[in-house]
Design a protein around this nucleic acid. Structure first.
Lengths: 193, 193, 193, 193
DNA sequence: GATGAATGAGAGTTCATTCAT
DNA sequence: AATGAATGAACTCTCATTCAT
């Protein structure tokens, strides 16, 4: 009976989100997903080519829904600035509402293991702190506005620079990364004022 | 953290950077690192507790150097805004000069596998494009300045929001993510004008 | 042995010959045979008890036809020697005419895998060559007739001895294999002269 | 310590002979061989590339010894006919003395499974019987000598023809199989007289 | 009789880690 | 300190077989 085909596809995908969020991608066995979905191990392979395929399908499905929802939210916006505000609000609201999915997309899809995660956090913190100190100093010096939330500003600054580097590393064509310093600074510094 | 006495500690770490950058963390075997370092498999375990420990030590070492260098660069700066500019320039310049290390910190430390990577890139691109369209539209509507590089702006916007979500997911104390929409928007929108 | 009513029994058997000859018994999936036969996977199990049963039924069917045809060919023969000649000619002619069936009975029914096959052929060749050298030498020494085809003679000699060993190994009652050396030699040596 | 390298190679090979002879190649797990050899599962893969490689190495090793021993036995022989007799006797004596090895080379290396074996034996028997009847008839008709052992003669005849077919099937270059009827008949018929 | 989606046991292979030398 | 042979736990994926429809 083919009419219900696809039902299990979704069931397995949902089971995978829960499993990955709970145990992490690498420590989740296909058998775990199967049990969570209430199907046999082999059934997973009727709907997905491999464990990897589950993760990728999962992400694609999440992104599809995300972009679809975002587009309809943007439809209401009168101008681009309103749209930008909507994009940010939608992004934060949506992931806020689905912590399991957020954990998969932000952590499992990127980080290797919890213990590695911890080992990385600590040395990273000193860099975070350094950035925060710069921002605080800027506030004291009257260069940046008082109302600024330092922690949030730090996340924005680090996230922005980090993404710029990531894109550069992943790019197939080489280009001058250093040359982006000025424009990135312009974008971020203005926001802080 | 093991002994620092022998120079082999450093030799292995350098071999690990090259190996991880070439093959990726998961596909790199401890034996590969050992061969690359010119030592026996077992020797690796005299200096590191585990394969994971190598990666973490590597990152800690890189970050230590990074922060140390950044601090001395900041020493010259007259005010906070100059410091911010320096942070950004230093970050981009440093990673730009060490592509191997950049690959490890940006990709291997986060991503799971090349094929997963590719499966993830495509659906992400549609979101990227959407953000870029908003920025372009803003430029046309005169809301954002003409001189803005759309791609860079998109990286800044996405990277900032993404980092905000990541911090929220990793946080041990729960807090309201949605409430950050407004301040994040303020920071980013200003930068675009 | 299942029902013979439906024509599907034969259809599946024919599909199996083709599949086995093409891919080999082990690498052929029951689903492959079903597709080749144009029936559903489950249908195969209405007519056959197992994958193994298909192979055995196949062989039985082939042997049945073979013996039936051989018997009618023998009916014409005036004496035993003529019959022997007929047996040999019939055997070679029949299999020559049905390469697919020949491949199944000679290879798939016996060999394990193509790569194993190759690994076995090489070391066997040195033995073959040794036998051929003996025969050639015999021809030069005038012990064996000049007209003898060395390759064919080698096949006859090796095939004969090999079959004698195989029967001994498969026999349920133990008997003295070495004692057969003399009679086997008598049979083969005479043929070479 | 490398001086003992190779020792385990042989230990595993010997364990494999016993295991294959007992359970058959396909039903023998690599873990079984490892246990039988008194080593860990992984150790097997230090010395052999795969399970298949064990079987092939085994056969190559057996054949090497076989041919080496045969060569020294042939060294004594005054002429080719004596050599032929020696080949046959050596072949039968050697395998007779090593039933485990004989079982591997004659059965496991060729047959698929015990139950398949049985399913094949029965229909084959009617062909065997037919050949034996022809030989018996020949003896009664005075065409073949009285002293002939019918069973042995049958094995020689069938083994010879079967080998001729097998070589034809495995040959990469096609040739006329039927044309071999006459020479094969000549070889076999003379032996029977 | 026919279907084909679902099952789930089963095993080869890898590789981080250990430890006798 | 250094070695590297040996370990053995871990896990994905296959596919013959079943059975509800």
């Amino acid at each position: 009976m083919a009419k219900r085909t696809g039902e299990k596809h979704g069931v397995i995908l949902e089971a995978a989100v829960r499993s990955f969020a709970r145990t992490g991608y690498h420590r989740t066995r296909v058998a775990d997903i199967a049990r969570e979905a209430g199907v046999a191990d082999g059934t997973v392979y009727i709907y997905f080519e491999s464990k990897e395929d589950i993760l990728v399908s999962l992400f694609q499905s999440l992104m599809n829904n995300f972009v679809k929802g975002l587009l309809s939210a943007l439809a209401q916006c009168p101008d681009a600035d309103e749209k930008l505000k909507t994009v940010i609000r939608y992004h934060l609201t949506t992931l806020s509402a689905r912590p399991d999915q957020a954990k998969v997309t932000q952590i499992e899809l990127r980080q290797i293991d919890q213990s590695i995660n911890q080992g990385i956090s600590k040395p990273l913190k000193s860099y975070f702190q350094l950035i925060e100190e710069v921002i605080e100093e800027g506030k004291k010096q009257g260069l940046y506005r008082r109302g600024l939330d330092t922690k949030t500003a730090r996340k924005v600054v680090f996230g922005a620079v980090d993404e710029v580097v990531t894109c550069w590393v992943m790019s197939s064509k080489p280009y001058d990364l250093t040359a982006l310093s000025e424009p990135v600074y312009e974008l971020l510094a203005k926001g802080l004022r």
